[in-house]
């Protein structure tokens, strides 16, 4: 096995990292959000899948060029699962890019209650082993 930097997505410490997911995490550390594209039928996925859901062929990672999205739905988590209880309250949002691809992440800079349809922009954060994408308003 080659030497890989130990990275975790978001706010968990899940160690189930595959080579494909490791490539995603390392790109994320460079502030690049990667989607995946099927090498056979061209279907695109966000978050990325290593295998195409339609033809099960291998997918390759490719950088998302879209940075702006709209809020599709949200929740304010006041009572969190134990692993995230130190962060509560936090806002989880589904953002929808103009292409229709969606991404689920925290909105980290809200000053008021979110509203469905409001504009979001893609942001990044990295701290020690943690890397993540996030939504900004």
């Amino acid at each position: 096995m080659s030497e890989h930097k130990e990275l975790y997505l978001g706010y968990s410490t899940d160690k189930a990292v595959t080579p494909f997911f490791q490539d995603f995490l390392e790109a994320l550390e460079q502030e690049k959000l990667m989607k995946s594209k099927c090498t056979s039928c061209g279907a695109e996925y966000l978050p990325p899948r290593q295998h195409c859901q339609k033809c099960l062929s291998e997918c390759t990672l490719t950088e998302m060029t879209e940075k702006e999205a709209k809020l599709y739905s949200y929740v304010v988590v006041e009572f969190a699962p134990m692993s995230l209880s130190s962060k509560q309250p936090y806002v989880v949002a589904i953002g929808e890019f103009p292409s229709g691809l969606r991404l689920t992440a925290h909105i980290t800079n809200l000053m008021a209650m979110p509203e469905v349809g409001m504009p979001l922009r893609l942001g990044f954060e990295a701290k020690e082993k943690m890397v993540t994408y996030k939504w900004l308003v």
């Binding site: 997505l9 899940d14 988590v77």
Partner: peptide, 30 residues
């Protein structure tokens, strides 16, 4: 709440602390 959140996608949803009520709150907001 932790155990039930682990029934979400462990790679893409769980790291963002989406508890069971949170999934349904996403439906309610929409």
């Amino acid at each position: 709440t932790e155990y039930m959140s682990q029934a979400g996608d462990m790679r893409w949803e769980y790291p963002f602390g989406i508890s069971f009520p949170a999934f349904y709150a996403l439906m309610a907001s929409r």
